[in-house]
């Protein structure tokens, strides 16, 4: 795949607050890339720098190898879907979508054809003459996507586009966005704080915190092999345990030694281990090396969330089997369920 956008060591300060502390990122053609992080992590600022609404204090934005840092937004080959849609309230659906084409003085017939095609793509056939202010949130969202895509950008930037929608429409729009991205075959850069949204839609997830990139990887990599405590706790739920890497493929914690699949951390190095709640099994204490007492059982719909207190810590387990409170149980997991990472602050 070809590199389309390259961010080189971007930094940005707002007044005395450091928002970006050196962002390096490559975005490839036809990629669905998500910038994921809590609010204030710098993900929206990164997107606005790519769009041209903000200027980085230092660093470069390369597009197809050319530096576009100095180009104004209207000269950049990208289009944006805004958080609150930013539809023009004095224009109907058709004129909103046709705005970019009208600015470029495209042929009237061509405009009509392209706008109709876009309306079909986002499932709003026949909505052209409607007043945008009277549409539902989901419909406004579709108009905003159509308005951006009709200009045939090489990259579509989406700033938390589903944030204002309710849960059901959100789910539906997630699938549709993914579908639209495959159909038009262009790069999407998507900003969200919702980890589930990021995991289910993206080809690549970029986890950010406090103006720095924490990890770049596929959704499964990010989930299964978090690089540090922040990523592990931000994406899904996890038990994070301080441990010692005794040697390759052998890690020690809670007074026991466990086989694992990780290597290359050195010998007797302090590390942290991530155990996902759904990877832990509740077994007979006779057959387990970690034992504890069930302290809390919460029904979560699909599964039970069970807290088991051992002598050292409390583990969270997700299981479909009910266990009563107060029962003495053992915890079991396989070598591939142990994810070793460097402790926070040592890398």
């Amino acid at each position: 795949m070809n590199k389309l956008i390259e961010l080189k060591n971007l930094t940005k300060n707002f007044e005395d607050q450091q928002v970006l502390r050196g962002i390096d990122l490559n975005v490839y053609e036809n990629e669905f890339l998500t910038l994921l992080g809590p609010s204030g992590c710098g993900k929206t600022t990164t997107l606005r720098i790519i769009a041209g609404f903000e200027e980085a204090d230092s660093g470069q934005v390369l597009f197809d190898g050319k530096d576009i840092s100095a180009l104004p937004p209207y000269k950049r080959p990208v289009n944006t879907v805004f958080q609150k849609y930013a539809l023009f309230p004095h224009m109907n659906v058709f004129d909103n979508i046709a705005f970019g084409l009208n600015i470029r003085k495209a042929d009237k017939q061509e405009i009509r054809r392209k706008v109709e095609a876009m309306l079909a793509l986002v499932g709003l056939e026949g909505f052209g003459s409607r007043d945008v202010t009277l549409l539902s949130g989901g419909q406004q969202q579709r108009v905003a996507i159509a308005r951006a895509l009709v200009n045939e950008p090489k990259v579509l930037l989406l700033d938390e586009p589903l944030g204002a929608l309710d849960a059901r429409i959100r789910k539906q729009m997630q699938m549709e966005l993914k579908k639209i991205q495959r159909e038009v075959g262009i790069t999407f850069i998507y900003v969200t704080h919702d980890q589930e949204e990021a995991l289910s839609m993206s080809d690549t997830v970029v986890v950010m915190n406090e103006g720095m990139i924490q990890q770049i990887g596929s959704p499964t990599d990010i989930y299964n092999e978090p690089e540090n405590r922040f990523v592990a706790s931000f994406i899904g739920e996890s038990n994070i345990v301080e441990a010692t890497m005794i040697e390759d493929y052998l890690v020690g914690f809670d007074g026991c030694r466990f086989e694992c699949v990780d290597r290359g951390f050195g010998e007797m190095e302090p590390v942290e281990v991530v155990l996902r709640p759904e990877d832990l099994d509740i077994v007979d204490p006779e057959n387990a090396r970690i034992r504890g007492t069930v302290r809390q059982v919460t029904f979560k719909g699909v599964h039970y969330e069970i807290l088991v207190e051992t002598d050292i810590r409390t583990y969270m387990i997700h299981t479909t089997d009910y266990t009563e409170i107060g029962k003495h149980v053992g915890l079991d997991f396989g070598p591939e369920d142990i994810h070793v990472m460097w402790p926070m602050g040592s890398y």
């Binding site: 769009a51 041209g52 609404f53 937004p73 990208v78 289009n79 944006t80 705005f99 970019g100 308005r147």
Partner: peptide
């Protein structure tokens, strides 16, 4: 910003 983004100077 949306207008700039869509190519308007």
């Amino acid at each position: 910003e949306a207008a700039y983004d869509l190519g308007a100077n």
